[in-house]
Simulated assay, not measured.
Amino acid sequence: MKVEIEEVGRSSCCLVRLGKHALNFKTRAEAEAFTKQLQARVNAPHPLPARGNEVLSAR
């Protein structure tokens, strides 16, 4: 997933672009914090659905 931070005009507002979608943030610090948390969640290991008592891992 492509994630970009873009400053909006002369204000301190920023856009975080997620592909075709964009989110507004009041400050660059808020945009960077959101982006950092999002990347951590995307990169975190996610368990695959289990069959019966079997637990699978995406690692």
Rank of each mutant, 00 (worst) to 15 (best):
L48A: 13
R59A: 07
V42N: 09
A44D: 12
N43I: 05
R59K: 13
E4F: 01
L38G: 04
P49T: 03
V42D: 14
K2Y: 02
R51Y: 13
A58T: 08
E32N: 08
G19W: 09
V16F: 06
G19H: 11
Q39S: 11
E54G: 00
H21W: 05
F25L: 08
S11M: 00
E54D: 12
R41N: 15
E7F: 02
Q37L: 12
A50V: 11
T27I: 10
V3T: 11
S12Y: 02
K2N: 09
C13A: 14
C14P: 00
F34K: 00
R10K: 05
E4R: 05
A44W: 00
N43Y: 05
L48W: 13
V3L: 14
H46M: 09
A29K: 14
R59C: 04
G19T: 10
L23Q: 07
Q37G: 14
R10Q: 08
L15I: 03
L48R: 15
K20R: 14
E54N: 03
A50P: 12
Q39A: 10
R28N: 05
K20I: 12
P45M: 11
E4L: 07
R10W: 03
K20E: 15
E4Q: 08
T35C: 07
K36E: 15
F34T: 10
F34W: 14
V16C: 04
I5F: 00
H21C: 06
R28F: 04
K36V: 13
Q39G: 09
L23I: 13
C14A: 10
R59S: 09
E6T: 01
E4A: 04
H21Q: 15
E32S: 12
F25K: 10
N53M: 01
P45K: 07
S12H: 07
A40K: 10
G19D: 14
A58N: 13
L23G: 02
H46D: 13
V16L: 09
A33V: 07
L38S: 03
I5T: 11
S12L: 06
S11K: 03
L15K: 12
R51A: 07
V42Y: 11
R28D: 01
N43P: 08
G9S: 05
E30S: 09
N43L: 13
A31S: 04
C14M: 08
C13W: 04
K26G: 06
P49E: 05
S11A: 11
V3I: 15
H21Y: 11
A40E: 15
P47Q: 06
Q37Y: 05
N24Q: 08
A58F: 00
S57R: 15
M1T: 07
I5Q: 02
A50C: 11
T35V: 09
A58L: 05
V8C: 03
P49D: 02
R17P: 00
N53I: 02
V8W: 01
F25M: 09
E7A: 10
V55C: 06
L48S: 10
R28C: 04
K20W: 10
